[in-house]
Simulated scan of single mutants.
Amino acid sequence: MRIGFYAPLKPPDHPAPSGDRRIARLLMQAMTGMGHEVFILSTLRSYNRDGDAALERQTAAAAAAEAGQIAAAWETGAVPKADLLFTYHVYHKAADYLGPALKQRCHLPYVIAEPSVAPKREHGPWAAGYAQAGMAIRRADVLLAVTALDHACLASFAGPARVTLFPPFLDPAPFAAAAARRDIWRATLAAQYGLAADQPWLLAVGMMRSGDKLASFRRLAEAAELARDLPWQLILVGDGPERPAVESAFASLGDRVRLVGQMDAEPLAGLYAASDLYVWPAVNEAYGMALLEAQAAGLPVLSVNTRGVPDVVRHGETGWLAADDSAATLAQALRQLLPDAARRSGMALAARRHVARDLSMTAAQERLAATFIRLGLRP
């Protein structure tokens, strides 16, 4: 089956790394691994950060022209026609103009993964984007909701029949391999970063950019300050324009904190496996791919019971979800978890099993196969 893949927020081949690009690539990898031919339908970005009406009109016009060119190429046989249109991440700031147009003209099944609806954007700067995103969501044959919160909202907006829960996922193999070499990684990283191997390692991974990410780093710094009487060392992975602000937030904690910058995939998997607790306040976080990565490597998670985090972390089983993201609540959770190595060890084992069973590439492929069968397509 030929699948035309489109990511209006950020195409999979975009040079700048991000969680959105990562998930787009994972989706393509999953479908390719199922034996399908997956191609990038278009690299046209519809992202409208500020709700610029002129930009939205330009995007709509460019998309109409491109949809016409794609459809004409298919109709004349210049290029093989797609069997399925698959769009990833549609919302008011990144509406899908191509999918609905090609579905209507070429009579193709149309799937949207991670659509979301924010009714408060129906009016105001993003009204046009909201309307287009809503139209695309209503025209899609299947909507793959990544969290229970999104599922409920989409079911209310577009009807429950076309909405399927499709949790985030990853390939757990590299993280399981790192977990098998935990002692080696811990010794190596302790020497590399000057860490004490006999003290608990706390880990946080995130892009250092303004907005919610910076807010999460600052909240983490506040919680660490409140728990500074406990034995721990904190490793921060990531980089970005707000790195100086992150450094400033943690400055009072001195050498108990290591900012190690961005890391390649293999040593990062090793750091997950070598650490003792992943800690992230998840301020306005949709769900957080790093939470999956940590668990896949056998690292229990301390986060917050908000938005999509409970969809990927099982409270009391694979980690601990604080009732709120206040520094005091997070610090209290640290006081409960850090002294209890046996509890963390049990969570670590459960976390690896949880990802392997429910949030793995294999699990995602099984859900995709069921979706394709539902559409009458080859799974």
Score class of each variant (00 low, 15 high):
W74V: 00
I137V: 14
L144T: 11
H123Y: 11
R138A: 05
A173Y: 07
T164Y: 04
V79C: 02
A82V: 04
A177H: 14
W74P: 01
S156R: 01
P80T: 15
L170T: 03
D96M: 04
R121P: 07
K93C: 11
H123A: 14
P100C: 06
Y91T: 12
Y88V: 12
Q104C: 09
V111H: 09
G134M: 04
K103A: 15
I112L: 07
A82W: 02
A78P: 12
A128Y: 01
P115F: 06
L144V: 13
E114A: 06
K81N: 02
A158G: 01
A173F: 06
A128D: 01
A72H: 11
Y91V: 13
P172N: 14
L84I: 07
A72E: 08
H89D: 12
G129R: 13
F169A: 04
V79N: 03
R162D: 02
V146N: 09
A118K: 11
W74M: 05
I70T: 11
A136Q: 12
L85Y: 00
A72P: 08
A73M: 04
L143Y: 06
L108Q: 04
P109W: 02
V142L: 15
H151F: 15
V142H: 07
A94V: 03
P100N: 05
Q132T: 01
T76N: 02
A173R: 15
V111E: 01
R105S: 15
P174L: 01
Y110D: 11
V90Q: 05
H123C: 13
A82I: 01
A78R: 15
P119L: 15
F157M: 14
Y88S: 10
F175H: 01
P80M: 03
G99C: 01
M135V: 14
C106M: 09
A136D: 04
I112T: 05
L102A: 00
P80A: 03
D96F: 01
A71V: 02
D83N: 12
C153L: 14
Y88T: 13
V146P: 11
T164P: 00
A176W: 12
C153F: 10
A161G: 00
H151M: 13
V111G: 04
D96C: 05
W126Q: 09
H107Q: 06
A140Q: 08
P80K: 11
V142F: 08
D83A: 15
A131P: 10
Y97Q: 00
I70R: 01
P174I: 07
F86T: 13
M135Q: 10
T147G: 06
P160V: 09
A152Q: 09
I137D: 08
A131V: 05
W74T: 00
R121A: 08
F166G: 07
A133Y: 07
R138M: 12
